[in-house]
Amino acid sequence: MSITENIIYKSPEESSIETRYVVMPDHANHYGTAFGGVIMSWIDMVAAMVAQRHCGKEAVTISVDRLTFIHPINIGDHVILKASVNYTGNTSMEIGVQVLKENPYKPELVRTTTAYLTFVALDENKKPTKVPTIQPKTADEIRRFENAKLRIATMKELSKKIKSKQ
């Protein structure tokens, strides 16, 4: 973490999280694969932890901007969730989450899900408050930052078009 002219900068690595779960029968549907809602709740939980670590305050989910299921996850699979801050605004943060599955008997990772969520930091009065500015350092962090800027610009443009038609 660094401070320049009262602006706090943090790298994505400082607040990133990786965690694991095992898909149990109560996490699955009648096809023997994980319920999307279970995976979604795990994504929201790990993203919230990243947002809280980044801003050092309470952070709440404002939106799930994109959630893409790529491959099913089976009962017994290990699920790895990797989450980090991709971009920060004044009071908001985009958190990216990648979900991977691993067959415990054949250690091969398969990306199953990607998600982008927006969180807002709250002060002690539950009002939006400033978050540290993200300072990407690695090539991967810079790529995620640039992609997030494109997603945010696209969302703003779409919102503007929708509002103009109302």
Rank of each mutant, 00 (worst) to 15 (best):
T91F: 04
P104I: 14
Y21W: 15
P132Q: 10
R143G: 03
T114P: 00
Y87K: 15
E108I: 07
S63L: 05
I134V: 15
I62F: 06
E94A: 07
R20M: 13
S16W: 12
Y31V: 04
R151F: 11
M1V: 14
Y87W: 15
T138M: 04
S2D: 13
G96T: 00
N29D: 06
E157W: 10
T118Y: 00
I75W: 15
Y9S: 07
F145Y: 15
S2E: 13
M24T: 14
G89V: 08
Q166L: 12
S41G: 10
V79C: 02
T138L: 06
T68S: 04
L109C: 03
T33R: 02
N147Y: 00
Y87A: 10
I43Q: 02
L117Y: 00
K106D: 09
S84V: 02
K137M: 11
K82Q: 10
M24W: 14
R151V: 09
N147D: 08
G96D: 02
K101I: 01
T88Y: 08
V99L: 00
I142E: 08
E124W: 03
K161T: 07
A115L: 01
K127R: 15
P132T: 13
R144P: 03
V50W: 00
T118H: 02
L150D: 14
E157A: 15
L67E: 04
L158W: 08
A148G: 05
K160Y: 07
T112W: 01
N90E: 08
R66H: 11
N74M: 15
I8Y: 06
P107I: 13
I70Y: 00
Y105T: 14
T129D: 10
V110R: 02
E14Y: 05
A59R: 08
